[in-house]
Write a protein that binds this DNA or RNA. Structure first.
Lengths: 219, 219
DNA sequence: GTCTATAGCCGGATAGAC
DNA sequence: GTCTATCCGGCTATAGAC
């Protein structure tokens, strides 16, 4: 990552420091909310500050620039999701289990519109090379892709997934489905059940590439 | 649509009017380029004007506001794509042929990064109810969805598509794949061949729901 | 139809008091 | 750590000359 400074969570000393940490946390939460609706460009630090109960300069005391605030937001989100996909600290899910893990992620996202909005908007904005989250976005995609690629490859080696399955296409399509469903869901949450749709997609993959014809594995 | 005024292409009278039309067209082209990279919010009318070879006020003479410029851009794009999907003025493609038409659209988009960028960015921005393109975006999705829904339903009636095929899920997934592939392609055009990936997706649908087991229909 | 000039707002960021 | 005050720049939009 090529982001400005770092923001280590402090090791809690005096009462004063605790207050500072609190403000910082509130600011990040507020930033997530606003970036997720208005996007990075569309949300002003003044608004974020207000929502966090600080003045604009108060906020800028914790984050030297708007980009730095964004960096903190991204670290925060990344931490949450990363933890989620690697299971509970053991080895990452492999083979079809990886798709089940993704289904779980979709289910979780269905209850967190802010995170979905944040991601959808940043993905679109940060496609431009100059954007402060551009590097993050590339990292995000490549790591997701390699995570899923490894999982599928492993499934093939263990004879769970058909050896003819076109790995890179499956990876790209799966990621596309995830992103695309979020986009639609954001536009009209009532029109679409992301978990249902994604499950349908995955069972389609099963019916084509599963070596052990189980009708559905994700209940 | 709830957009401000209208911009009829003039019926070409005097030399003066011709010049005006020319400027207007140049402005729309420039706006497409800039909106497609920086987004609507991110691009300023001053920049659009410069790119079109006008002053900022000169541009605003043709379009009373920035939102009006956006409206013109959307009309322009909509016209192009609508024409494309309804074939050459005859009835819209039905059954599997609809998916072939979509493949054609993807192929065309592969050569028009500006249109893809425009759409990806606006889709993300305009998810917010307040955005000037919000109504357009909803229209766009619902009309695409109903177009594809009709096509699939017709394919079922003619016995070309299996009656158990889950229509709405297929529609949502197909749209998701289209959007998601564009997003990935925009981030790294060399990493992904949209036509290949989409074709793989469609042949997956065939293998699951085609009643006449032809291996591939999209070459 | 196109320009210059300008109003008026809002954005990010800095200086410095408390 | 938090505030007020302020600078500076960019933005949309308007007024009015040519």
């Amino acid at each position: 990552m090529s982001f400005p400074p770092r923001y280590r969570t402090p090791r809690a000393r005096s009462r004063v420091e605790a207050a500072g940490a609190e403000s910082r946390a509130k600011a990040v939460r507020a930033a997530v909310e606003l970036f997720s609706t208005a996007g990075y460009r569309g949300a002003s630090i003044a608004l974020v500050a207000e929502k966090a109960g600080l003045s604009q300069s108060g906020l800028l005391h914790h984050f030297p620039s708007k980009a730095a605030l964004l960096a903190a937001v991204l670290e925060h989100r990344e931490a949450e999701d990363g933890r989620f996909l690697s299971g509970t600290d053991d080895r990452p899910p492999l083979g079809w289990a990886a798709f089940d893990a993704l289904t779980g992620l979709v289910a979780r996202n269905s209850n967190r519109p802010e995170l979905v909005g944040l991601f959808v908007r940043l993905s679109a904005e940060a496609t431009e090379p100059g954007h402060p989250a551009h590097a993050w976005l590339r990292d995000h995609y490549t790591s997701t892709q390699s995570w899923l690629t490894d999982a599928i490859r492993d499934g093939q080696h263990r004879g769970e997934i058909h050896p003819d399955a076109p790995i890179t296409a499956l990876v790209h399509l799966t990621v596309a489905v995830l992103d695309g469903l979020q986009q639609q869901w954001l536009l009209d949450p009532d029109d679409i059940d992301m978990v249902d749709e994604f499950t349908t997609f995955v069972s389609g993959l099963h019916s084509q590439w599963d070596t052990t014809p189980t009708t559905s594995s994700t209940a």
